[in-house]
Simulated assay, not measured.
Amino acid sequence: MKTVKDVCRHVRSKNAGPYWVTFDLFFDGPENFAKYSQSPALGADLMHRLFGASPDQVKRFAVPSLNVVKISYARTSPQGGEIERDMHCGQQFARLLDVQLD
């Protein structure tokens, strides 16, 4: 079974303002982008399960010319709040690497 780390050459997460987090999945080519960019495994349910995001607050954008999928979700609490563990969200991507896509 293929995972995100098997089909993406780079995965990153970042702060998208005080209320949003964004993930960028750079697929390793047009073939894998075409095969996995619309995978239900990368949907709102995943963001809810891994990060507690409200499924109706998850947005997904595909950029075919770059073989990239951008997934954003509203934070459960604002950036810098009392329970903040990763203020810039630079480490959040790690949870996506082993997500199975098949």
Rank of each mutant, 00 (worst) to 15 (best):
Y73M: 03
N32I: 10
R75N: 02
K2P: 14
R12V: 14
S13T: 07
S72T: 07
V4Y: 01
D45Q: 15
A62I: 10
V99S: 03
K2E: 02
L46K: 04
L96C: 08
C8F: 09
V99Y: 04
P30H: 14
G90E: 12
L42Y: 02
A53F: 05
F51K: 05
K14L: 10
M1E: 10
Q57M: 09
D28S: 15
V11E: 07
L42C: 05
I83Q: 13
C89E: 04
A34P: 13
P55K: 04
R95K: 12
R75V: 08
N67T: 15
P30A: 15
L42A: 03
A16K: 06
P55C: 04
P18E: 03
N67M: 12
S65M: 14
S39A: 14
F23D: 05
A62M: 09
G17M: 00
Q91W: 02
W20N: 08
P18K: 03
I71P: 07
Q91F: 00
K2G: 00
W20Q: 05
L46C: 04
G81M: 01
P40F: 00
G52S: 03
V99N: 11
S72Q: 05
G90T: 09
D86R: 08
S77E: 13
P55D: 03
F27R: 11
L101N: 03
V4M: 07
Q38L: 05
E31I: 14
V68G: 06
H88P: 12
S72C: 02
N32A: 08
R60L: 01
G29M: 04
D6A: 06
S77H: 09
K70H: 04
F33W: 13
